[in-house]
Structure formats: C-alpha cells, structure tokens
Design a protein around this nucleic acid. Structure first.
Lengths: 342, 342
DNA sequence: CTGAAAGCGCTAACAT
DNA sequence: ATGTTAGCGCTTTCAG
C-alpha cells in the first residue's frame, strides 16, 4: 500500500538504484535526473522505509535517551527541556529518540533498557546523574555515549555541560557588585560535578575581590527542604551574612522561605541568587535572581555531538560548555548604603 | 556481526523457519524443539532484528506519543508521568514509544510529526488538550488514536480519563462532611472536559446535600495566577464562603496564596481542596487536601487500549475511567462549631 | 552517469 | 511437526 522506491523509479523513468542514489545525496547523479527524481518523490509523497533501509545499512536511525526516574519526575521540567532539545535536533538529523528511565538505584545485575539489549539504538544520551553500574554495563555494549549535565570523571566520553564555573562566578560577582562582602555558598551533594564547578566559580570571584568564602552545606538533598535547612544552619552560626548564592533554584527558594519565616526581608536584609532558572515559581515573591541555564540548547548540543560521533566514529571525546546568563530579578539589591570595612 | 536467526537455527539444528515460529509463539511446534530453540536463543543472546521483521510484517513496533509543548513543559510533571506509564507498559507490549511535542498553536498547513509523515508508528497516543487541526490531519492518516486526559466530543476514539466526576463529588462531599455549606468551585477554561466533569461532580454532591453551587471562574488560565485572581474575585463578592474546591492543584495553590496574603487562615477560616495531586510543592503550608489522579496508571491504560486496537483493529472505541482518591491533608478541616442554618 | 542484480534478516506460504 | 523458498524495500557492487 505505501509508496515504494520502485513506484518512484517508474514515475521518474529511472531505475530504483538511481532513486536510491538521489535519496542518499550521492553526487554522481546528474542535476537533471536528480531533479526529475526529486519531483517524483514529492509528487508521490514518498518516504523510504526505515525497516528496509535499516536491514541493509545495519542502522536503525534511533538514539536512546536515558535518565533516572527521579530526575524525570522532578517538579521542575529541567530534564524535560533537555529532552525536548534533543528531540528537536533529532528531527534535523533524522533520528528518532527513544526515551526511557532507569531506577536511581540501578545495580549491576539489573537489566538494561530494552533498546540497548535489543541493539535498537545507534547511540545514547545520558542525562543527569547516572548510576555508576549503568555506565559500566553500557560500556560493554560499546554504544556511543554522550553525557548531558553530568559526566564521569574518567574523561572517556563526550559531554555537554552548562558553564557552571562562569555561572558561579557571575552570580557571585553580581553580589559583590551590589556591595556584598559576606557571601555564602549554599549547597548539598558536593560530589556532583555541577555543584562543585559552581563552587569553583564562586571562589574565584571571591578571591578576585579578596573576600572569604563561606560555604554552608546541607547533608540532605539539593531541593527546597535542603535550602531551608542549610539557611537555618547558616544563620544559627552567622548573623552577619548579607548574601546567599545557592547552588540551584530549589535550594534558593527554600532559603528564601526560611528567611521570610524568620522575618528577614529579601532582598533588603539578604540578597539571594539561584542557579538554573527553572521558572518553577514565577509567582515567587520576590522573583529570583538566578543564572539561566539553556536547557534546550544543552539537549541540542548533545544530539549534535552524538551525530558527529555516529558519522565519524573516530571522533575524540569532546566537551561542550553551554553559556549561561545572569538574570537579575527581585531577590538581589545593592547593599544598604552601610559602609563596609573589608 | 550481530546474531541472526540463522545462527540460532544452526545451533539448534533446525531451520530458520522453525526458529521464527518459536519466536512468534506459534503453537504447532513441539514442546521439545521449542525448548531447544529457546535455549539456543538464550545462549546466543539473540534478539530478532526489528528492521527485518518490520520489512516483512509491515509493522515497525513503534507508537507515537504526542502532546503540546506547553503541556510537556508544565512545571508539574503531570504529563511526564503519564508518559512514563505509557513507556512502562510499552515494555511489556514490546513497543517503542516515540515522544514528540507539537506547538499549542498548531494550524492546518503545519507539518505533522515526522513519525506520522514517514509512517513509522502503528498508532498514536494523544495526551492532554490537542489542537483540533491536528486531529483533523491525523485522521487522514487513518492512524489508530487513543486519547489520554482529553478527548474530542465526537466519540470516535478510545480514551482514558481519570474519574473526574467521582473526584469532583468526593472533594465536595468531603467539604460537606466537614460541615461546610457555602462551597465554591474555582475554575477556568470550562471548555476542557476534565474541568467540566469535575464541575458535574461538584454539583451532584451539592444537590444531594441540597446546597447551592457557587461557581467562580477566572478568564485567564488554570494556573496559580488564575487561582489567585479567581479567589480575589470571589471574596470581592462574597465574604461568607468557607470552602473552596479548585479545579486543579495549581489554582488551589494560587487561591491559598491569596488567602494567606489577605490574612485569612487556611484551613481555619477557609478550607481548600485541589485536584490532581501534583506534589509540586510538598513544602506547601498547609499541605493541600486534594484528589489524587493516577497519572502513570492512565498512561498504562492508554497503551493497553492502543495495543488492543492494534491487535484487533475491529475493536470499538472504549472509554476507561481511572479511579481517583481523596487525599486529606492540612488544607481542610471541620467547620468551626458555628451552627449554620441552611 | 545509470541499470541489473544480489542480498540484508525475517516471515509465510507451500512442501514434505 | 518441520524444512524450503520466495520476497518484503532498500543499498551496493559491478557492468555498461
């Protein structure tokens, strides 16, 4: 029932081989025949069969997108947007994206995603923190892998990250520019490369201004509750801090909530900068100054990297940093004209 | 390089046809040979090639999952969870799910998702509100369609909905049981079937208790801002309302915010019930009493419905209602012993 | 520059 | 109950 290559060949008065060559952009076809064939394809609304193509070319045109279940269910659509970027780019690259989640607790004998077991993807994008065991298993399959927003330390893979160091620097610099001198870094889970990189940026900005770093961590997690707890811990020790740089928006919002409850005004008494720009809470009061991460762009870049590897599998691992941007909203302001001695 | 059916055949000392029959669970194979073949398959780690299968069977083992971009990027992972359910069930049904978004503003000459143009899906799940034009276009492709959490009025398709009427009823009944007599329904966008059905349930519960309905809508949208505005509008007119049933959690949270700002205590002065149980804000104070929608289950059911249609395409359109559940948290309480005259 | 033909891995008659 | 074989739609030598 569907239109086949033969139908096109017949209509264009050429052989099916010629049509195939045209489809595959082979250059040894005269402009004239190419045009005729192209027209026939369009007239007929022909689309080559992926099955037939895949059968002979040993390629299936699919790529996998794996992330942990808890990441995908997160209340902010962070990874969702990365996925959208991937899918967007996949349209241009003519791939289909198969999305699957694996349990955060993935352990060695657990079974891998179906599409890798059945070898129905040519490569895979790994988004966010991935259990070590999963990487191990994947490695055995020799699947081209690209990491987004996370990467293993071994340097063997291509990765796409947002420019966390620059972001940390910009956030901190912004606070310094506002006149703040005692600026805390609120975080949790320092193992995570992003959180660590943001910390680097923070420290660099402080060093440049000759200020001391005041890192405060929560043992829990990098969510609102963690931010709330960390802020609580911070102000139990030091009441003189005037600015907070949180490792992400969720913690920033948690800290904001704590401050409000304690009657401290944001940004009058304390300025807060977040990271990610999750837009989770546009009704937040005050709206959060933050570092915008280009989530879709990250997905796009990841897909591009993967395509590159797929086309030329000798390609060396590359690392792409997607630029970030300071978004100044209402949670930061100039420090109250008070003159501060360093 | 990969293992083919012939490798299996050779190892099992049978023909490839026999292997094929075993794979396809054909019953006219003796138990003995079946066992031998199965063992060979396992030993070799054989997985049939989808391309080859697809080429002859005209099936590709893919199903599409379409939703609008704004739905997928929503801050609560509502549709994300529906998708996860679909993917979960797809594993059992041996399908791959191709997820794509279309612009909310989809208009007729816009191009359809690639996987339908290229006919690379056997059927499609449509999640959430879908532009009418899209349905129109899809219809021409004669693709089996299943709707989740939304459906066109024409009754031509299979759909999966949560039991909105029961949910609206339970929510309202809960408030009535708490002693409330003046209960508002806060909503927006009544065109949406879910919102309308919830309204039905609300009205039924009120009628049964012989109470009047107090519907208040916001002209904007069904998000927090809408909830805030609607609550504002409500209390501008009537100060005697003691309970609010919002058409979803987002609006409930918006209303909650308005009440807090105006100094009204929740639940002491006003009780609030939401709908969806999005868990967006576990740190919400007070935590929201709501109607839990089983999002994953909805995705699972949608996939099952689609599989059913695909296996037996004479199947008639079916409608599945996924049960809901009242979750009582802190935003509702018994009405202050005040005696109320009806 | 284009056509003829073989063959990818599998299924489905048809034989045996 | 199992084997033989043609052919699905496409790509890819190899000829011309």
């Amino acid at each position: 029932m569907p239109i086949t290559i033969k139908d096109v060949a017949k209509r264009a008065n050429v052989s099916s081989a010629t049509v195939s060559l045209v489809i595959n952009k082979n250059k040894r076809i005269s402009e004239k025949t190419r045009a005729i064939v192209l027209k026939a394809i369009k007239d007929l609304g022909y689309h080559p069969s992926r099955s037939a193509r895949g059968l002979v070319s040993k390629q299936n045109g699919n790529i996998g997108f794996i992330l942990t279940d808890d990441h995908f269910s997160r209340s902010e659509p962070f990874y969702t947007k990365i996925f959208i970027g991937t899918e967007l780019q996949a349209r241009d690259d003519e791939y289909y994206v198969l999305l699957t989640t694996i349990p955060k607790s993935f352990k060695k004998p657990d079974s891998l995603p179906r599409f890798v077991l059945e070898r129905n993807v040519e490569g895979t994008i790994l988004a966010g923190m991935i259990p070590w065991d999963l990487m191990d298993c994947l490695e055995e399959y020799k699947l081209p892998l690209v990491f987004v927003d996370y990467y293993p330390a071994n340097g063997k893979y291509s990765v796409v990250m947002s420019d966390n160091i620059a972001g940390g620097f910009q956030a901190t610099q912004h606070l310094i520019d506002c006149g703040h001198r005692r600026i805390t870094y609120l975080y949790s889970d320092q193992q995570h490369p992003s959180i660590n990189e943001r910390f680097q940026g923070y420290k660099m900005a402080l060093e440049k201004a000759n200020l001391d770093s005041i890192p405060v961590s929560d043992e829990g997690s990098t969510n609102r509750k963690g931010g709330y707890n960390a802020a609580q811990r911070l102000f139990a020790k030091r009441k003189d801090v005037t600015a907070i740089f949180a490792c992400n928006d969720a913690m920033a919002i948690g800290a904001l909530q704590f401050l409000k409850e304690k009657g401290m005004k944001v940004p009058k008494d304390v300025s807060i900068v977040g990271f990610d720009d999750v837009e989770a809470d546009l009704s937040l009061d005050p709206p959060l100054t933050t570092i915008r991460v280009q989530k879709e762009e990250m997905g796009i870049q990841a897909m591009r990297l993967l395509t590159e590897i797929l086309r030329n599998n000798s390609a060396k691992p590359r690392k792409i940093l997607v630029p970030v941007e300071l978004i100044v909203r209402g949670s930061t302001c100039k420090l109250n004209k008070k003159v501060e001695s360093k």
